[in-house]
């Protein structure tokens, strides 16, 4: 065991943030415990549930499987940092009005995945949404309303 708590400079939500991390600290741990960004959740810490999903260089990744130290030099965006994005704003509104949110624990990660889908594929069908969100487990909704919200957001954005 090497004591190598080190200072890292991370680019998070458009700002440079200095944190101090151990070598085994994941991005999720640093975001939640040091930066107070608790929008990304820890549902399993094993890369399966998707509640920790954040973006690195524009791609949704598992916060719990990304080592913080390896994220230096990369652009990190969490749910808290998507506020100005019009695609996210529409998705969020549709999630709210279409009842795609129950306990909400999966919601931030789900939204991060959904945003990437709509960037890549502005008019997905239900099957494409199911495929894009299959890495984000929701135990409450049964997915139907989440898929409907994403489809409605796509439609709204197309107008």
């Amino acid at each position: 065991m090497i004591d190598d708590r080190q200072d890292l400079l991370l680019q998070v939500n458009g700002a440079r943030r200095r944190v101090s991390a151990e070598g085994s600290d994941t991005l999720l741990t640093v975001l939640r415990d040091q930066l107070g960004l608790t929008g990304a959740k820890r549902g399993c810490n094993q890369g399966v549930c998707g509640s920790c999903t954040v973006e690195v260089d524009g791609w949704p990744v598992r916060g719990c499987l990304s080592l913080a130290a390896a994220c230096e030099g990369h652009e990190i965006v969490t749910i808290e940092g998507t506020g100005r994005d019009p695609v996210m704003a529409v998705l969020q509104r549709q999630f709210v009005v279409r009842g795609a949110v129950q306990c909400g624990f999966c919601t931030p990660g789900m939204l991060i995945s959904a945003r990437r889908l709509l960037q890549d594929q502005p008019r997905p069908d239900a099957e494409a949404v199911q495929a894009a969100l299959s890495g984000n487990i929701c135990r409450c909704t049964g997915y139907r309303k989440i898929i409907d919200a994403v489809l409605a957001a796509a439609e709204e954005l197309a107008q």
């Binding site: 065991m1 890369g47 499987l65 990304s66």
Partner: peptide, 26 residues
């Protein structure tokens, strides 16, 4: 070697791997 992390970091989180040095390949 640390490649994407999808397996190695999951193992580290579970206490199943405790590498001394990680060589990030990205």
């Amino acid at each position: 070697c640390l490649a994407g992390g999808a397996t190695l970091v999951a193992m580290m989180n579970a206490g199943l791997a405790e590498p001394g040095v990680l060589v990030a390949l990205d």
